[in-house]
């Protein structure tokens, strides 16, 4: 559909959600990149004299925390951590998730029934629960968080593609491919996967946003990133005792999480509309 529109020279406008989301996302990606080479002050720059400075103080636009560390600096470095965790966890889950989905639809109907149940069990497991078990076993930290998020995503991705993959396997051209002597795996790789491409791209975006949300929750619980790794969730945890005197320690990290997740969700929704304009009126999340 998009091809014919492009060829006729009548380019479709990108959905508003996609443009707004991409703009918002680029702010945070930019922040993360800039924090690699420059931050307003060094991230572990403890300055007890300037502790709990309110936003707008000299040299600290967003104020400082209980040890006088600059909040803006931590937000910028935190963006790096959140984006890194979400991308690594999602990409780590991508191949195993797709493989699991293909493995389910490749078998007999009895196999498919049993395997679908196994996948359902996996989907029922909350990511945070997996993370709590892993953090107990291998100790809290980014590795436990990323591994848990990836493990949680594998059945979600498989579940998502089983239905559409079955639909495609019912098409005539698949029948034709079999008649031509193609193997089951050839059909899956050449016909099924390319046809659910857009679905996967949208889901990956949504998984980025889920990962950021869960990473923040895990760091808040103390089972995610540990010092000195910067993290928005842990900023909220460390700021909670000062909720009365220094509300700015709560406001900015929370806003950063919300806006990044929102940005990914908007990009995902925008892409869904772009790939499938008919669905625009009743797009349903997840």
């Amino acid at each position: 559909m998009s091809d014919s529109a492009t060829r006729s020279g009548n380019r479709r406008r990108l959905p508003v959600a996609l443009r707004v989301g991409a703009a918002l996302l680029s702010v945070f990606v930019g922040m993360a990149l800039v924090s690699l080479v420059w931050t307003p002050s060094s991230s572990e720059g403890i300055d007890v004299a300037a502790r709990l400075a309110p936003p707008g103080s000299e040299g600290h636009i967003l104020g400082t925390d209980r040890l006088g560390r600059d909040v803006l600096t931590q937000i910028m470095s935190g963006a790096r951590n959140s984006l890194m965790v979400s991308v690594v966890a999602t990409l780590a889950a991508l191949i195993p998730g797709l493989a699991l989905g293909l493995l389910v639809v490749a078998g007999s109907s009895r196999w498919q029934f049993v395997m679908s149940r196994v996948v359902d069990l996996g989907v029922a497991l909350p990511g945070i629960l997996v993370a709590l078990v892993l953090a107990t076993a291998i100790g809290p930290g980014n590795v436990a968080a990323m591994a848990a998020i990836a493990v949680w995503f594998v059945p979600i991705l498989a579940r998502l593609m089983i239905g559409p993959a079955r639909q495609i396997l019912a098409y005539d051209y698949v029948e034709a491919a079999y008649a031509y002597g193609r193997s089951r795996w050839f059909v899956l790789m050449r016909h099924v996967l390319p046809n659910i491409r857009s679905l996967i791209i949208v889901q990956v975006t949504i998984m980025f946003s889920l990962a950021i949300n869960v990473e923040a929750a895990l760091s808040y619980l103390g089972v995610g990133a540990q010092r000195p790794t910067p993290s928005w969730g842990r900023m909220l945890y460390e700021g909670q005792p000062f909720i009365q005197d220094a509300p700015h320690l709560m406001i900015y990290p929370g806003l950063a999480i919300t806006l990044t997740v929102l940005a990914y969700n908007l990009v995902g929704d925008g892409m869904r509309t772009w790939f499938d304009p008919q669905q625009k009126a009743k797009a349903v999340a997840r």
Binding site: A216, Q240, I243, G254, I257, V261
Partner: peptide
Amino acid sequence: ATQLGLAVPTFWVGLMMISVFSI
């Protein structure tokens, strides 16, 4: 509003509620 509701972390909403309604 649903977009915003999907994006905002529950624990942060909780913290904000404590800040406003309790403190």
